[in-house]
Simulated assay, not measured.
Amino acid sequence: MITVGLIAVPPMQLMSLAAMTVLQTANSLADDPAYRIELVSEAGGLVVTSVGFGVDTRPIGDARFDTVLVSAFAGTQAPSPSLAASVGRLAADARRVGSFCTGAFVLAEAGLLDGRRATTHWRQLSRLERAFPRVRLLRDRLYVNDGKFWTAAGMTAGIDMMLAFVEADLGEEAARAIAERMIMERRRPGGGMQVSSLLTLNPKTDRIEAVLTFAKKNLKTRLTVSQLADVAHLSPRQFSRSFHAATGQSPAKVVERLRVEAAHAMIVASRHSLDTIAAETGFADRERMRRAFLRVHGRPPQDLRRTARELAAA
């Protein structure tokens, strides 16, 4: 049985506990439970959560775990040196070490991320970079694996990382079955973008929402203004005005962002050539995809592919 210790750092973010549902579901789907999970803390006893109630923990003491995880925590307080020392001791004996969101600060304080690739929630990236310049931060990742060390971006990205753990431990079919049981639309690869274009657009009308959904499902096609206007049941002129009012951008600009997002996911999760990815995501050719990446990300897709290969090699 795989022993998993989740270190609760106060005030603990509840999404760290939610991510453990992946392992609980793995146990429920198997004839014999694969995981034994313990909630521990530096001193033991009740640990306050970010919503105010406490959770019971046992002291870290001389515990040993196959997998050590550090919870996310609210606020900007620096991890205590004693906690970092405890985490360092646990990590030395563990097969796998991970963190959720701000838990990466604890791993970094313990010196475990020096020279390693890592990530955290997009709102904390700059703070982590300033505090621990030796960490090689990756900004457009849901989770990062470097050796035995894993870091998740935070919130629901922790669920994606835990599914990756299950896939490594029990196989792809087990991870897929858990995602289905948890009613997840899809399993996201670690290289997915932290902030989705659809979320940031936040359209105010059902018509524009329907257009965005249609566009995302049909990126390989040409997607003209007239075609999108037909989906919205508006004339092209009315549609262009309504779309800009709802999103603050032109239809062409938004479609480009959606294509870049889709290409981004394919680059980090597949071995397809950049020419194939450009065709599959609706770019006329590789060069147009490169220019779009420069406009959206400030770097070409070749850089993203290079980073993905380095991570795979690591």
Rank of each mutant, 00 (worst) to 15 (best):
V255K: 02
K216F: 13
S126Q: 13
E38D: 13
L17D: 00
L170K: 08
V296E: 07
P33V: 10
S50Q: 11
T276P: 02
G75C: 08
V135M: 07
T276Q: 09
R188K: 09
P300V: 10
V48E: 09
R186A: 09
A232H: 06
T281R: 08
T49F: 05
T25C: 10
L199V: 06
F243S: 03
F132L: 01
L83I: 10
V40Y: 03
T221P: 00
R134Q: 14
L142C: 03
D31S: 13
A229Q: 05
L39F: 10
D114M: 09
L223Q: 04
A278P: 00
I2M: 07
V225N: 09
V296H: 01
S226P: 00
L137F: 07
F214V: 04
R58G: 01
E287Q: 13
I178Q: 03
L228T: 08
V51W: 05
A63G: 04
S126W: 12
S235E: 04
A8K: 04
D303N: 09
I277W: 08
R123L: 10
R36V: 15
P251R: 13
P203C: 09
L83Q: 03
G54Y: 05
A110M: 08
A245Q: 13
L142P: 01
L17T: 06
F214S: 01
A245L: 15
A246F: 06
E42Q: 15
R117M: 11
E185I: 07
A246C: 12
Q13L: 14
T21I: 04
D169K: 13
L6C: 02
R181F: 08
L170S: 07
L311I: 14
G248V: 12
K217A: 14
A265T: 14
A85H: 07
I183G: 00
P79G: 04
S250T: 15
R116W: 06
T307V: 15
M15I: 09
M182P: 01
L128F: 09
S16L: 12
Q13I: 14
R207T: 09
